[in-house]
Design a protein around this nucleic acid. Structure first.
Length: 555
DNA sequence: TACCGGACTTAGGAACTGCTCT
DNA sequence: AGAGCAGTTCCTAAGTCCGGTA
């Protein structure tokens, strides 16, 4: 049971589509559009300048769904048959109007948006769970639109229809007042955390409305996740021994399971669950195929598409226990074809059953938490001559630790289009800063003061005072100048190092926040400088933890 | 064991905000 | 003061894990 009482105001639906008077032609013939069809055309037009619009599968999928809504004679049209030029014109015009708006108009519009949002949050953004007010995360139903998957998703370009109240199930306490609306179903499932849910027409996946990270229930679970990783770290030697032993097992199935488990422990790879055929072809540890690995004399090379079709390229040097691992892999792929799964009949269930037989509650994903957290802890431990450094250097240092975790978890990002230009600009600015001498004027004043004639005691005193003040001023100016240069230099360095890595995901989901909490306390830098306002709220539970770096650093 | 589907966590990129530098 | 952009939040897709049923 997760709660006793639960009250909320249901969910909000996106506004109905407003007609723009879009006209289209199919094979040269004018075709009238109803509101739904026009909405589809409008959404397509909004995508026209993105790479999606050039994607053949995207075009074909959209055209098919669009054709389904049209008269029978258009059933078999192809993308090239449709003339969207009027829709494109309308979208361009809207964009122009937005850009032509004056500062004041933009500001007024932003303010209006903000006010509306605040009003809606008042009504839908709060729930009362067990007598306490808690924030709701996503209280709005997903708007209709063109499905954009990641990688080669077979459904990309298809139309995701509008969700209405009758599609939605609300989860409320028995005592709660049912919010007004034509809801599909009301349930009182106090074993669940969701407030509302519906099944997505297109993907046939269940969608949910959840509480925000700030809710007590969420905080407890987040802490429990990191506690699991702590438990794993305490038992890691035992686990490793068992896996290494079982990799040599005579029972081929046990050996296979142990080999996948070693892979996960060694690389922080995801376990790799079963997938639907109408999803992008991505893999994890248990679903790796022969074509994804290459074994050389003393390495194992991995190259495959993982979650979100992010490429995972890694070379594992086979040393120590890795030798057995390498041997097992070699044997496993021996008589297989490139498309064959390396671990054949092994699934995530086998892996998790095996792990939890060693440590209760242990599953594959805990390894990613454990490995990312350990990475950060060890990096900070090994680079501990930091206390005398500036706050900028300390934070830079923490971010390098964060980067280690991101690399471990393979949190890659596409390099931003403006990356090179932005970096060059920073380099140029740094060069200019080096040339600047903002203390020069003060220096001149100092020289003048020094040359000043002073006869009486009062004059001498006055002169000395002036010289002292100017010297102090110069010192301050120089400090400020060098700090500015230092800050920019560190920024440049970090942006080069994190070029294609995304630090946010590991910070949010994998690194035990108590590590950075203890470390920032230890070295005297603000914890808040590492975590955004939203993350500070997510990790509110950390505030009640007594964490000492000296204790954490012991193991 | 195979398969299905529900519940919950993790994920990258788009959209937006607000801060810094000129 | 205003532009430009870095940092942050939002969005929702895509995973993990597990219970249930045949």
């Amino acid at each position: 049971m997760k709660w006793k009482t639960l009250q909320h105001n249901g969910i909000l639906f996106p506004p109905a589509y407003e007609a723009h008077g879009i006209k289209i032609k199919i094979k040269g013939e004018n075709v009238d559009l109803n509101l739904n069809q026009e909405e589809m055309a409008y959404q397509w037009a909004k995508k026209k300048d993105t790479p999606y619009a050039q994607d053949k599968v995207f075009q074909k999928n959209f055209t098919e769904d669009f054709a389904k809504t049209l008269p029978a004679k258009f059933k078999n049209i192809s993308y090239q048959d449709i003339d969207f030029s009027h829709a494109y014109k309308i979208v361009d015009k809207e964009k122009d109007l937005r850009e032509m708006m004056t500062k004041e108009e933009k500001k007024a519009l932003a303010l209006k948006r903000k006010e509306l949002r605040e009003k809606l949050v008042q009504k839908y953004g709060k729930a009362i769970m067990d007598g306490k007010e808690v924030d709701v995360a996503n209280y709005m139903a997903e708007p209709p639109g063109i499905f954009i998957g990641r990688g080669d998703h077979p459904l990309r370009g298809r139309w995701k229809p509008r969700v209405t109240a009758k599609d939605v199930t609300l989860n409320l306490g028995k005592e709660a007042k049912v919010p007004e609306g034509n809801w599909g179903k009301i349930v009182h499932d106090n074993d669940s955390m969701w407030l509302a849910g519906w099944t997505d027409y297109l993907t046939e996946k269940r969608k949910y409305v959840w509480l925000a990270d700030t809710a007590g229930l969420k905080q407890d679970r987040d802490k429990a996740k990191y506690e699991k990783a702590v438990k794993l770290s305490k038992e890691i030697e035992k686990i490793k021994e068992r896996i290494v032993k079982d990799m040599k097992s005579k029972d081929p199935k046990i050996s296979r399971i142990a080999t996948v488990c070693y892979l996960i422990y060694r690389t922080a790879m995801r376990v790799g669950d079963e997938k639907d055929p109408d999803e992008a072809d991505t893999v994890g540890a248990t679903t790796l195929r022969k074509e994804h690995i290459n074994i050389t004399e003393n390495t194992i090379e991995f190259d495959f598409l993982g979650k979100d079709s992010v490429r995972w390229q890694e070379t594992v040097k086979a040393e120590g226990n890795d030798k057995q691992f390498q041997e097992n892999l070699k044997k496993l792929i021996q008589n297989k074809k490139p498309k064959d799964e390396i671990f054949e009949d092994i699934t995530s269930r086998h892996v998790n059953a095996y792990y939890s037989s060693i440590v209760s509650g242990l599953t594959a994903k805990v390894f990613r938490t454990y490995l990312a957290t350990t990475m950060v802890k060890n990096y900070l431990k090994e680079h501990d001559n930091i206390k005398g450094k500036t706050p900028n250097e300390k934070l830079y240092h923490a971010k390098l630790a964060n980067l280690e975790a991101a690399i471990m978890c393979n949190h890659k990002r596409t390099i931003p289009k403006t990356y090179e230009d932005a970096l060059q600009k920073k380099r140029d600015t740094l060069k200019n800063i080096a040339k600047e001498q903002p203390w020069k004027k003060t220096m001149d004043a100092l020289k003048k003061a020094e040359a000043m004639e002073a006869k009486t005691d009062a004059q001498k005193k006055n002169k000395a005072k002036k010289i002292k003040t100017l010297n102090e001023q110069i010192k301050k100016q120089k400090e400020k100048h060098s700090e500015r240069a230092e800050k920019l230099q560190l920024q440049i360095d970090l942006s080069e190092k994190t070029k294609d890595y995304n630090l946010g995901t590991s910070l949010r989901n994998y690194i035990d926040p108590r590590i950075f909490k203890a470390w920032t306390n230890e070295v005297g830098v603000e914890w808040e400088k590492l975590y955004t306002a939203a993350l500070q709220k997510k990790f509110l539970w950390v505030q009640n933890e007594k964490v000492l770096w000296s204790e954490l650093a012991k193991n």
